[in-house]
Every structure is written in C-alpha cells, then in structure tokens.
Design a protein around this nucleic acid. Sequence first.
DNA 1: AGGTACCGTAGAACAACGTTCGATACGACG
DNA 2: CGTCGTATCGAACGTTGTTCTACGGTACCT
Lengths: 233, 233
Amino acid sequence: MARPQTRTGEGRRRASHSMESVLAEAAALLDEAGPSALTFRALAGRLGGGAASIYWYVANKDELLDRTTDYVIGDVLAAIEKLPPAGDPIDELRAMALTLFDAIVERSWLAAYFMRNSDVQGNALRLYEKLGQPTLRLDLTARQRFHAVSAVVGVVVGSAIDLGRELPEGFLDSGVKRDDFLGHYAGAWRELDPEEFPFVHEIVDEFDGHDDVEQFRAALELTLTGLRRQAGA
Amino acid sequence: MARPQTRTGEGRRRASHSMESVLAEAAALLDEAGPSALTFRALAGRLGGGAASIYWYVANKDELLDRTTDYVIGDVLAAIEKLPPAGDPIDELRAMALTLFDAIVERSWLAAYFMRNSDVQGNALRLYEKLGQPTLRLDLTARQRFHAVSAVVGVVVGSAIDLGRELPEGFLDSGVKRDDFLGHYAGAWRELDPEEFPFVHEIVDEFDGHDDVEQFRAALELTLTGLRRQAGA
DNA sequence: AGGTACCGTAGAACAACGTTCGATACGACG
DNA sequence: CGTCGTATCGAACGTTGTTCTACGGTACCT
C-alpha cells in the first residue's frame, strides 16, 4: 500500500517508469481533467516517454482503468480503516458509507468506474469486507447481511452518479455556476402545468439550491432505518 | 410514442431518414451489441446512408446518446403509466421502481446513460414526476418527498449498475456462464483467510448463484420501510 | 416552364484515439 | 566481451467523431 515513487531521472534520456508511477499519473490525469483526458499519449507525456511503453505495464485500456480504479480505492480503504470505531454497528456503517461517498464526490470519474472493477482480488474486495463487518454484529441472516451491504453500496453509487453528471457547457467556475445550473432548471420547472406536474411543483423549491451531500445522507438514512428495523433493534 | 418506421425505400437511391428512425435504429444497435457498437458509420449503414447525414439530426454523439436515452425512457414511462393503481402509495412506488429496474436490466447500457440525461424537458422529467406522485399522498414534508424520490432512483440505478457490469471475456452463452462467473469468484473467496475476511466468508454462499432481482428488491425494501416509517404509517 | 431557395444527403478528408510491430537500449550474469 | 531478459520508443495501422464542401430533390414564386 506504500507508494515508492519512481526514482526521478537525473539526466537520463530514456524514461523509466514503474507500475506505481503509471497508476498514480493516470489517477492524477483523471482527477484533473476527467476521463476524456486519460489517453495513452497524454499519460506517456506526463511520464516523459512514449505511448507504447505503457503497454508493458497493462495489456489494454480496460486494464489500465481497472488497475487505476483499484489503486484509488486503496486510498478510500485507508481512509475507512482510519475511522474511529463507534459502538453501534449502524453508526459505523453510516460513517463508512459517508467516507466512500465523499471520496467519489471528490473524484467524480470514480462513480462510473467503481462498479466495473471485476477483480476478485484487490482493494475493492477489502472495502466490501470492511463494509460488511458491522453487519456481523447485527441480528440478521447471512442473506440479509449480503443484501444490506449491496443496498448501501447501491445507494452510495446511485447517489454519486446522479450527482456527478457533468454540466452542459459552462464547466468552468463550477462553484458559482452550479447554483445557476439548478436555478435554470428550477425556473423551467416552475413554468410547467401544475395540473400535469404536481410533484415537480411541490419539490422545485427544495431542488433549487439543494445540497448534494444532504440529499445523499437522506437517502442513506432511509436504507439504514430499514436495516435497523430489520435487525429488530 | 409510436414508432412509425421510415417508409422503406422503393428503389430510391438516396436514403431518407427521420428523427424517429435514427433514434430507433440507435437504440436497436445499443440493444443488440452494446455501447461500443453504436458508431456513426454503423448507424448510417443500418439507415442506408452516409455517416455525415446523421449530423443533420444531432449535433454530436453526446446529443445522440441523450436523445436515444430519452427515447427509450419513453417506453419505460409508457410501461409505468400502464401500471394498475394500487391503493397504498408505497406499493405504487415499489411497482414503478420495479418496472424501471426491469427496463434497465433488459437494456444494460441504459444504466450508464440514464443519469447523464441533462435535459429538463422530455420523458425523464415525466418519469420523475410519475415516481413522485405517490409521495404526495404520504404525510411528508416537501423536502422529504424530494429526498424520497432521489433515494428510490439512487437505489434503482445503483443496483442496476452493480448488476450490469460486463463479464470479463466469455460474454456469449451468458445464461449458463453467469453461474460459472459467480462460482468462480465464490471459489476464490472461500480460499481467503477467514480471520481477515469474516464477512466475505459469511455471505459467500449467498453470493454464489444469487438472483439479481431479489437482491434489488431487498435493497428497495429497506428504503421503502425507512420511508414508511418516516411517514409515520 | 424555368429559376431559386431551402431541406436533406453524402463523399472525402482530418485529427485523435487505441493498439501493434520491430528495432533499440540498458543492466546483470557468464 | 557476448548474451539474455527487461524495458523503452518511433512509426505505422485501422477506427472513431467530426467538418467541409458539394450535390440532389422538392416546393414555391414569377
């Protein structure tokens, strides 16, 4: 889990990479400019070498994506393992889910790639294990525990994807633009026929300027309440 | 919502499309061979014309994806509107969520594109309205209603994405292969250290050969019980 | 009937992408 | 010094999204 940085070249002509540096730079590229910025040529440029060299470390782009995803999930896992133990299993589960959600919000590309990780090994499995451990202390059947963790992961990913959709054009100045973005839709929704769209009218004020994290917390809380009730506590 | 097929050419040289035929053919391409099969040239081939012609109907591929997504959401919406009214609002919400989930399962590409629809207009908004209407009959605040629908959509999409990940290689004969796929992972998981992975060992038998729809229903049920409890019923 | 304006269509070309191939350099070991 | 396995890179190929420009067809006007 440590990250030995590739010995930074001193006047060498040919570039010298390492699995670690490739994945770290790929993640940095995704963080800074999104999925479309992660190309073999751009990655090679950052590493100071040729595009073909990367194929020595990964077989193709799918594998690059999988490994990079698992690489950053390692960070999430580390953050979750640092969480202080709360006595209540459901409180622990909530804290873990929030940590995972925060990580996905910071790296919006993660939402789309999180699920496509088809590796049994690796950090995704460890994360799954961590999320499941609190349920062992709840009075549930094995099947209920299995479903509980699936539900929590589903809520996290579903909410994160909902939230992570890109804005139509003005992607810069996203801090200010986001409220304009919501306001623009809210304005259009208010123009709709109240007879035909009673629900949209009911919630348009809540939608306008709403906080994504609060929205996620509310969704998570519904699942956790259902779970607590199922455990009979 | 009907799909008038473009009058099948009788010896015409030049192809003659329509917005409808473009979207229908794009959806068919996605259904039959997945997202990677939807290229402008392949689509033009099915329509019997040149690739550049499609740019008269859509500005770019993003818009093609958005419009195609909204097009098939129209089908989902039609299915949801055909649902018989159940007295209980939560029962109605569950029926709608299941219908939406089924539709996404049938068209696995939908899960990834469902959320990226940034159009205020269109069928997505109407679907959102439909999902929200049952909550109007529950004793909730506007904010709680807003969060309730977000939660349900999150569970549906999150579960559908979890389920829709492609198998590593053997994608053909998916009927039989799926159990092998699960079994392969289950086998690997059983080899793990029980001390380090107590949860994975607890649920591995549940994972092996599990039913996706049941898994989703369980997750949805947790959210719905939480919601029912919130409504004080 | 002839012109003309506009709606659609399409071929050819471009840049960028993932990927492959073959050649080349480097370090270790005999 | 020679050799082998590791690692790197330039050049090229096929495919993709996209643009440019030109062409065909229909309807309408004079």
